[in-house]
Each structure stands twice: as C-alpha cells, then as structure tokens.
Simulated assay, not measured.
Amino acid sequence: MKTRTKPTPKLHHFWRLCLLGMACSATQANAIPINDEWDVGGALRVNYGWKDYDNDDSIEFELFRVDVNYQSDILYGSAQYRWYKDIDVIHHAYIGYNIDKQNKIQLGVTQVPFGLLPYNSHSFWFSANYYLGFEDDYDTGFHWIHDRGDWRWDVAYFISDEYADGTEFDRYSFDVATTAEAPYEEAGQVNLRGENIIKSGDATHKIGGSLQWQQLEYQPNTVGADPGEDIEGYAGAVHWQMDWQQWQTQLQYMRYHYDTPADKRIALSAFAFPFEIANEADVVTANIAKGFDVDWGPITHLNCYNDYSQIFVSGQGQADSIQNVTGCAITAGKFYSYVDWIAGNNMWFINGPGIGIDEGEQRWSSRLNVNIGFYF
C-alpha cells in the first residue's frame, strides 16, 4: 500500500475547501417551498479521491441535481435528475395516489422494493448490493405499498429498466446491460417484499424478506450473432435491522441467479461503463453505525459506520469479492459530507475487473474518498 509522508498541495486545498464548506451554515437544508403543494430542491457536490493503486488523486465536480416534489391530500409525485461530470441521468420520476392511510400506489421510475429500505448501507459507496443491482435500484413500472405501522407489504411490477434500453450505459441504477458477449435486456420484473416492525424497550427491529423474478430478453447487437433465447433471473433476501438509541445494526443475506447458458457471467452497466458479474452468488452484508450529536462550530451531527459486503461464488472462472467501507457522515447546516475509506478485493470500482469473476490474481486495493455536498 502506498503511503504519504505529508499532504500534497491538492490535499491542502481540499481541507481548506472542506472547512470553508462546513462553516457556511448551521441549519439543516430543506427544499424550497413554492406553495403548499410544490417544492424544489437539489444538491451540488464535489469529490476528493486518493487511490493506493493509481496516481490520479484530484478534487473535482461530482454532481449537480434537481429535485421536484408534489404533495396533495390524495396525489403526490417526485422527480430527480442528475448531472455528473461526464453524464446526465434520471434518478427517479413517478406519480402516486394515496388510496387511504395504509395504501398507496406509485407509477413511473420508482424504487424497486428489495431488501433493506431505503438503503442497505450508510456510506456514500452503498453496499456491494448496489453494484449488483439490488440496492437503490429504480425501474419503470407499478408499485403498491401497504403500510399499517407494524407491517409493511410491497408488490411491484416493472416493465423495463428506467430507459427501456440495455445498450444505454449512462445511468444511475445498475441494470442488466446489452453487450456483444451477453446481449440481454430487462423486459419484465415482479417484486414481493414484507417487513415486520417489532419494538422492544428502546430497540426497534425490522425483520423482513424479499423475492424478485426477472425476464431478460435476448437482444443480439452484432451482425451475425448466434441465435439465443430469453432467460430468467431470480433473487431472494432476508434482512434484519435494529435501531437502539443512536446505534444501528443491519444484516442481510441474499441469493441471486441468472439462467445464462454457458460462461456463468452476465453484464451490468451504470455510470457509462458495462462490466461483468457472476451469474449466481450468495451475498452477505453486515453493517454497524453510531450517531453522535456534537457542537463543533457548524457541525451538529456525526454518523460513523463500518459497512461490510462479501459475494460468495463457486465454479470455474469465478472468485469471491469483498468490499468494506469505514467512515463518517458529517452534518453541518446545509452541508452533508462523507469521509470514507474503501477497501476491496476483486471488487468493481475498487480496482477489480467485475464482481465475482476471476481474471487472474486477486489482491486488496483501497481508496480514500471525501464527498462534500451542499443541499438546498
């Protein structure tokens, strides 16, 4: 692992930027209300990254986003669009109808109900499930939610990914990609999810399970490609979350499988790049976090965590993948920042060729990532 004896000028510049950002406000940001039913908000984020496997540490623009929300007694809606450094993408865009106090429906590009919601993680980097398409995923379809307080049930059907195009790699959610080697596209998906909330003294437990079935259409995108067949994908998960005082613990086990014909791989894409994952795996996540109320000038709250993910695979051409993120989220008025140390072995986005695949020697790599966000 590379070490530094002193910060570089860029790093000095980063900490000046960080301290300036933390000192600008002392109240939590809210969206700007237009009237009783509409509000508009958004965010501007910059990012600093240092990698022990590359010499390209830098401070750069990461994101500008716009949020629009609508809420009346019966109807509601929400949309978010994001501009990154090199791409712009839709995050979500749906309309909703409150049937009654316990039931509502959503139609459009809405979150897929699978596993721990809203996130199976605490860090800027999410868990490994995000990169497999099973965390903070948004697709186009219909979502029914029944929430009576102690029980929540979700039933959803999605006709496609958010773009209905597997060759569109510029996207936020990780979806099945149409590539020359794996020419498939999402073409129908059913999700069922149930969760029970149990209170015991100061502790609140969430215990639940999820099922997902997918239809993937064969879409050869090269002239003279071999004929193929549509395939199916299956996934199931069980989860537990405990909130006690300012502690939070999350555990989840997931199993997924795609009926790929031969090479035991399938392609996903997001943020402009396709990559390969094992066609089946067991995935375990174990996270713990602790919140701290502080009075450090403009800083009012810290949430420190360790999020661990491991992907277990077996078979020729496959190898386990691991991701661990240790860090803190910092609240300072309208600024919300992450300081994360990410370590991974054979893991996409941390110097790995994909997820769960074997492309030769596996070794640990790590990176420091600091993200400063101004939310309005």
Results as ranks from 00 to 15, higher is better:
Ala180Glu: 10
Thr326Ala: 14
Val68Thr: 15
Asp36Ser: 12
Trp364Glu: 11
Arg4Ser: 13
Gln318Ser: 12
Pro113Met: 11
Asp293Gly: 09
Trp364Lys: 05
Gly209Cys: 01
Trp153Glu: 12
Val40Tyr: 08
Thr204His: 02
Leu20Ser: 13
Val325Leu: 08
Glu280Lys: 15
Asp295Gly: 11
Asn279Arg: 08
Phe114Trp: 04
Glu62Val: 02
Ile95Pro: 08
Gly194Val: 07
Trp125Thr: 08
Phe124His: 14
Ala79His: 02
Ala128Lys: 14
Val89Ile: 15
Asp282Thr: 11
Ala23Thr: 13
Asp161Ile: 07
Phe335His: 07
Tyr130Glu: 04
Asp202His: 14
Gln111Val: 14
Gln189Arg: 15
Thr285Phe: 10
Asp54Ile: 00
Asp67Ser: 00
Gly77Ile: 09
Val109Tyr: 01
His91Leu: 05
Gly327Asp: 04
Asn47Phe: 09
Thr222His: 03
Asn221Tyr: 04
Val284Arg: 01
Glu195Val: 13
Glu361Tyr: 03
Asn69Tyr: 10
Gln241Pro: 00
His257Cys: 06
Tyr305Ile: 03
Ala187Cys: 04
Phe374Cys: 13
Ser78Glu: 13
Ala225Leu: 09
Val294Leu: 09
Thr167Ser: 11
Pro118Lys: 12
Ile372Gln: 05
Phe292Met: 10
His91Lys: 13
Arg193Gly: 00
His257Ile: 05
Ile74Ser: 06
Phe158Trp: 12
Phe114Ser: 08
Asn69Thr: 11
Gly344Ala: 07
Leu211Ser: 00
Ile197Pro: 00
Val283Lys: 02
Ile197Glu: 09
Asn129Arg: 14
Trp153Ser: 08
Leu302Cys: 01
Ala225Phe: 04
Trp240Ile: 05
Gly201Ser: 03
Gly344Tyr: 09
Ile288Pro: 00
Leu211Asp: 03
